[in-house]
Structure formats: structure tokens, C-alpha cells
Design a binder for these strands. Structure first.
Length: 118
DNA sequence: CCTGTGACCGAAG
DNA sequence: TCTTCGGCCACAG
């Protein structure tokens, strides 16, 4: 028996990421690593970030709540060229998610657990 | 084909 | 508890 992990990264990979992100309900958050793990590849968290990088620029048939995805420390990872009109923190606060003084979210409280996770 | 890079993660100090 | 550092892997040039 080998210990190789299944890879879901390939054609349609971005679409799968978006589909998984859509499962996170309003007022809740999930981490990049969580999404990667749900797709079967726990080590492609960075690729998830890549997939979501241009999500707010592209128009999707179904909306992609990309702002509900944060890093494992409960903080927001944003790029320098982020659009102020799509401020992630503000979008989350609008859904009722509270932030600590240091700008992080309490994952114990807001982290969403997928039905088939744990 | 080879190299650099990035919306990450987790162990270690 | 906070900061630092190496590893991770797909993708563009």
C-alpha cells in the first residue's frame, strides 16, 4: 500500500473550489486549508488562494462568497491591489462576523464545519 | 524544460 | 502569545 494522496487538482479545479466556497453559509468563515482538505488535497491551500484571487473581478452565474475564506490564524490575507469596494473585513462584518482588536476572527466561534468533515 | 512566485500552514524559538 | 522560517504545489514566462 502506498501513502500517496489523491489529487483533485486539474481541469475544473477552480470550479470545484468555487463550488466548495459556496457551501459556506452567511455569517460563517472557513480557512484556505479547510477548502483544500475538503477537495482531497490538504496541501494546496495556496492554490485555493490563487483561485479566489480574481474571484471578485470575474462574474459568476452563481455568486462566490470569497470573503468568507480567511487564513488559519483567523486573519485576512489581502493583496496590495485589493479593491476598497470589496473590503473583506467589511463584507464579513456586514454578515455579523465580529473582529478582535488585533483584526482577527475567533475561529472557534465562526469557523464553519462541513457536514462531511469530522 | 527550468525558474520564480504566491489571498498558506504549522512547527519551533 | 507572537514572530520567524522552511516547505508546499500549480502556473506563467
Amino acid at each position: 500500500m502506498t501513502s500517496e494522496e489523491p489529487r483533485v487538482v486539474g481541469p475544473g479545479w477552480h470550479a470545484k473550489v468555487f463550488a466548495m466556497v459556496r457551501r459556506v453559509p452567511r455569517g460563517r468563515v472557513a480557512t484556505y486549508g479547510q477548502i483544500a482538505a475538503q477537495l482531497g488535497s490538504p496541501r494546496v491551500a495556496r492554490q485555493v488562494g490563487f483561485a479566489l484571487a480574481g474571484a471578485w473581478r470575474v462574474e459568476h452565474d452563481e455568486p462566490v462568497p470569497w470573503h468568507r475564506i480567511i487564513n488559519a490564524k483567523g486573519g485576512i490575507s489581502t493583496r496590495p491591489d485589493a479593491d476598497p469596494d470589496h473590503d473583506q473585513r467589511r463584507l464579513l462584518e456586514r454578515e455579523g462576523v465580529e473582529f478582535r482588536p488585533n483584526g482577527t476572527v475567533d475561529l472557534r466561534r465562526y469557523r464553519w464545519s462541513f457536514p462531511d468533515e469530522g
